[in-house]
């Protein structure tokens, strides 16, 4: 129940922002189009943030997600082009999508293996990977994007008027909540993050679980990447610059602790939406993208420090269970 209280703050801020914007810009903000737009844009970040939640709960970090986002997109698009020629259609788009996601899996696997088998710190491994994957994405086409004009379904398509990307986001959210709450992988993620030694001594296969976690975020980055490519109908080697920080911010605002053992998917979703609506609101209110950075920076620090304060005050009361 204390988890619930902790999420009250970001959730409250989210509601507050929505109310303020509704009051000030009812005509532009309070429209279905705008909401769907915000959600669609959130889906890319949100999907990655879900993976990052697992990684952070396990007391790890993945700094390479932005670069991976670019690499998956470039790889997927390259496969589409190679199979479908100048204007790929149909099956080649499907294969390209699978290939893009596959590259994410491989990247995550590499990160996971380096972290567990060489016993390197996640920060260091993924810092290196961040540069490495970005480099490959840039070298592939000498820094040029790959345009796939008809790759629209993931980004623009909809089922019963609901955008496909939002449906994917929702399905992944539900699946992640289930894994984290009701499956061993989720339980072990918490245990490893809380006390890796204790988990190991209780028979948890720590290495295997960590590799799974990094592969999981790899899959999610792959999916997010293909949605991104589809939205812009092109794969950019510079895509996702700084994404890792936005995503980590969303997870942390959602109540996860970088020390591990703590965090929830619902919190992360709230954190993601908070940042998205903030961006959207700033734009609608005519605040420049540059100034938005200041606002977001402030929000991160305020959210986390209030959370910390509440936590240290409530520390003695943790077992109240009320």
């Amino acid at each position: 129940m204390s988890k619930f209280v902790r999420q009250l703050l970001p959730f409250g801020s989210l509601v507050l922002i929505i109310c303020i914007l509704s009051a000030f810009r009812p005509d532009t903000f309070l429209t279905m189009d705008n909401f769907l737009n915000v959600l669609r844009r959130s889906s890319v970040y949100g999907i990655i943030a879900i993976g990052m939640t697992f990684v952070i709960i396990s007391a790890g970090i993945d700094l390479s997600v932005g670069s991976m986002l670019a690499l998956c997109g470039m790889a997927g698009a390259a496969v589409m082009e190679a199979m479908g020629g100048a204007n790929p259609q149909g099956a080649s788009l499907v294969y390209g999508t699978i290939a893009g996601i596959g590259v994410g899996v491989v990247c995550g696997f590499l990160n996971g293996v380096l972290i567990t088998k060489l016993r390197l710190q996640p920060f260091i491994v993924t810092l290196g990977a961040m540069s490495f994957y970005r480099g490959i994405a840039l070298v592939m086409r000498d820094g040029q994007p790959i345009n796939i004009a008809d790759y629209k379904y993931l980004g623009e398509g909809s089922i019963l008027a609901v955008p496909v990307s939002i449906i994917i986001f929702a399905v992944i959210t539900a699946a992640a909540i289930f894994i984290l709450r009701y499956m061993k992988l989720g339980r072990y993620t918490y245990a490893i993050g809380s006390n890796r030694e204790a988990a190991f001594h209780a028979g948890v296969n720590v290495d295997l679980n960590l590799i799974c976690i990094y592969m999981f975020i790899g899959v999610l980055v792959g999916i997010a990447s293909m949605i991104q490519v589809s939205r812009t109908v092109s794969a950019q080697p510079t895509a996702g610059l700084g994404t890792e920080l936005d995503v980590i911010a969303a997870v942390v605002i959602g109540g996860a602790s970088l020390a591990g053992g703590q965090g929830t998917i619902v919190g992360t979703i709230i954190g993601t939406l908070l940042i998205s609506f903030l961006r959207n609101g700033c734009t609608l209110l005519g605040i420049s993208t540059n100034a938005q950075l200041i606002v977001i920076g402030l929000i991160i620090v305020i959210a986390v420090s209030v959370d910390q304060l509440a936590r240290s005050k409530g520390k003695e009361l943790q077992s109240t269970g009320s």
């Binding site: 709450r181 499956m183 809380s194």
Partner: peptide, 28 residues
């Protein structure tokens, strides 16, 4: 150091080594 995940629930700590044995290897 090697026993408890201190910030996690007591019940989670108790079942940590035995999830398979109590028939929760798939879903908890």
């Amino acid at each position: 150091r090697t026993g408890l995940c201190l910030n996690l629930a007591c019940s989670w700590n108790i079942t940590l080594a035995g999830l398979d044995l109590i028939g929760m290897s798939r879903t908890i």
